[in-house]
């Protein structure tokens, strides 16, 4: 119904990658290397894919690839039973690296199928380009009924309209400034490195948070609290994050009860600060938390800033190295301590 894949006329990179993923899955399942292969398949709404757990080789043809492959599939890996193959983008593999470093899955249980990433789309941005409120398929004026993805653009279709948007204009914010679009670790790399987006310098991603940091304290706090106030405490952001795997999250503790679901702003702030501290030095800006949020809270304000702090203080970027100690487990004499009160 909605074609996420190349439009079929030319053999674009997307098509090549999609075929590569299918072939790899087939091979891995046939050889018994993996019990389950996790990738993406066609979703039920325009510009949506959905995680697919493939167990027989014949089903590998369900797998797709395209700029709507937004989910970070490594969220399914902690405590996964059996051998698993998983499709990862440049950012996803960095959460996986963390999971391996933190002993949530052993390296030999997971076959990493890396994809040179050209970025995923952000539905909020599409909505803004369309000028609608609410999800694109719920636009009052122009509800989108289907979408096609070409090499460089999206073609949205509805009743009596067709609308073309350049992919570059609606990329997810993390993708726009992504420094590692080619997975840093993999067992198989689909296609080749030239198929990925051009990598940006890490600093490019900090422009926004830097600008925010320069605002007056009051302005910062009022923006922050206005955003957090809207939080409905569903904790979908936590559930979507591959690194939030604690068997009992501090938010769920009953005694002592750290966080109440009562309507206070302070509890909500505490939740968000607690969560961000727990992913400090681990978060890779994959954006899964932000995408999961049903009320569109600007969570990247926190994640990106934390990433910047970590980089500036420890010259550390999360998830790049599979043979190091996790940042929080490593101590160096020259580590700065000026934030310790």
């Amino acid at each position: 119904m909605n074609k996420m894949t190349g439009n079929g006329t030319e053999k674009g990179t997307r098509h090549i990658i999609e075929e590569g993923i299918r072939n790899t899955a087939t091979k891995m399942l046939e050889s018994g290397e993996v019990d389950v292969f996790i990738g993406y398949e066609e979703g039920t709404l325009p510009l949506r894919t959905t995680p697919a757990f493939i167990t027989c080789p014949e089903d590998a043809t369900r797998l797709v690839w395209g700029p709507a492959c937004e989910n970070n599939l490594t969220v399914y890996l902690p405590k996964f039973q059996g051998a698993v193959g998983v499709v990862v983008k440049g950012c996803d593999v960095r959460t996986l690296t963390n999971l391996i470093l933190e002993n949530q899955i052993s390296r030999d249980k997971v076959k990493i199928v890396g994809v040179p990433c050209s970025g995923i789309i952000d539905r909020d941005r599409i909505r803004k380009v369309l000028g609608t409120e609410g999800p694109i398929e719920r636009s009052m004026e122009r509800p989108v009924r289907s979408a096609q993805v070409t090499e460089r653009s999206l073609i949205l279709e509805g009743d009596g309209f067709e609308f073309e948007i350049q992919l570059e204009d609606v990329l997810a914010p993390s993708c726009e400034t992504c420094a590692y679009p080619i997975p840093v670790v993999y067992d198989v790399l689909i296609g080749d490195e030239s198929m990925a987006r051009h990598a940006k310098d890490s600093e490019a991603g900090y422009v926004e948070v830097t600008r925010f940091a320069e605002l007056e304290r009051d302005a910062r706090f009022s923006y922050f609290s206005r955003e957090i106030e809207r939080c409905i405490q569903c904790y979908a952001c936590r559930q979507a994050c591959p690194l939030c795997y604690c068997p009992e999250c501090f938010t769920d503790r009953q005694s002592p009860k750290w966080i109440s679901r009562w309507r206070g702003l302070s509890d909500k702030i505490l939740f968000h600060l607690g969560r961000i501290l727990h992913v400090a030095g681990r978060c890779v800006d994959c954006g899964a938390c932000r995408r999961a949020c049903p009320v569109g809270i600007d969570l990247r304000l926190l994640t990106k800033n934390m990433e910047k702090v970590v980089k500036e203080s420890f010259e550390y970027e999360s998830g790049l190295d599979i043979d190091c100690l996790p940042l929080l487990a490593a101590y160096k004499r020259e580590d700065p301590d000026d934030f310790i009160l």
Binding site: D124, E133, G134, R138, S139, M140, P143, R226, E227, R230, I232, P294, V295, G296, I297
Partner: peptide, 25 residues
């Protein structure tokens, strides 16, 4: 009424009514 990126029902108090397809909440 709009609340950030989302919509919900609220007291409109003088605002013009704008009915979306379906409110988020």
């Amino acid at each position: 009424v709009a609340e950030g990126e989302a919509t919900k029902f609220g007291v409109i108090g003088g605002m013009r009514i704008k009915i979306p397809h379906l409110t988020t909440r």
